[in-house]
Simulated scan of single mutants.
Amino acid sequence: MDDLTRRRVYGADHDDPGPEPGREYVQLVGGALDGQLLDVTGMPPEQRVGGALLMTDVGVYGPGGRADYEPRTGDPGRWDWRGDTA
């Protein structure tokens, strides 16, 4: 995976948006959260296969909407956007 130290972490404080040492992240690809990192530290592998619905105010459904991401086949360090949901 490319250098992740300059990317913003999903849900992180705006004053300290970068990744923290010792944490595990996946890169979000596509959709409203494209390029952000998702902290998956402590998330068991069996939960990761289902991906995540992540809250975002900038998706199709606006505030309260969610962006659906799932692990990329053959590259679990990247999660691809599948669409938005209310």
Rank of each mutant, 00 (worst) to 15 (best):
M43K: 15
Q36E: 14
G22A: 04
P17N: 11
Y25A: 08
L28W: 09
L53K: 08
G30Y: 05
D39N: 09
R23A: 02
G64N: 05
Q27S: 11
P71A: 00
G83A: 05
P44L: 08
Y10K: 10
T73R: 00
D15E: 13
V40E: 08
P45I: 00
R6F: 15
G59N: 08
V49D: 04
E46F: 09
D34R: 04
Y61H: 06
Y69M: 02
T41L: 04
L4M: 09
W79H: 02
V60N: 11
D15M: 10
L33S: 08
A67I: 00
L54K: 00
R78G: 07
V58W: 08
R66A: 12
D68Q: 15
G11F: 05
Y10L: 11
Q36I: 02
T56L: 03
P63H: 04
E70F: 07
G42C: 04
V40L: 07
G51D: 01
Q47V: 13
A52H: 05
T85K: 05
P71V: 00
R8K: 14
E24S: 12
L53W: 10
E24H: 13
G59L: 01
R72C: 06
D57T: 06
G30E: 13
P44Q: 02
D84R: 09
A12G: 14
D3E: 14
G22P: 00
P76G: 03
V49S: 02
G77D: 10
A86Q: 15
P17V: 14
A52D: 04
Q47W: 11
T73N: 03
G18E: 13
T5F: 11
D16N: 15
T73H: 01
P19E: 12
D3W: 09
R78P: 06
G18A: 14
W79D: 05
E46K: 10
E24C: 06
E20W: 13
V29P: 11
V58Y: 09
D15S: 12
G62C: 05
V58Q: 13
D2E: 13
P45Q: 01
W81C: 12
D68E: 15
L28A: 08
L38I: 02
L33K: 10
D15P: 11
A52M: 07
G64A: 04
Y25R: 07
V49M: 06
Q27R: 15
T73G: 02
D68Y: 14
V58M: 11
V49C: 07
D68F: 12
V26D: 03
Q36L: 14
E20H: 12
R8A: 06
R72K: 12
G74N: 03
L54G: 05
G50V: 01
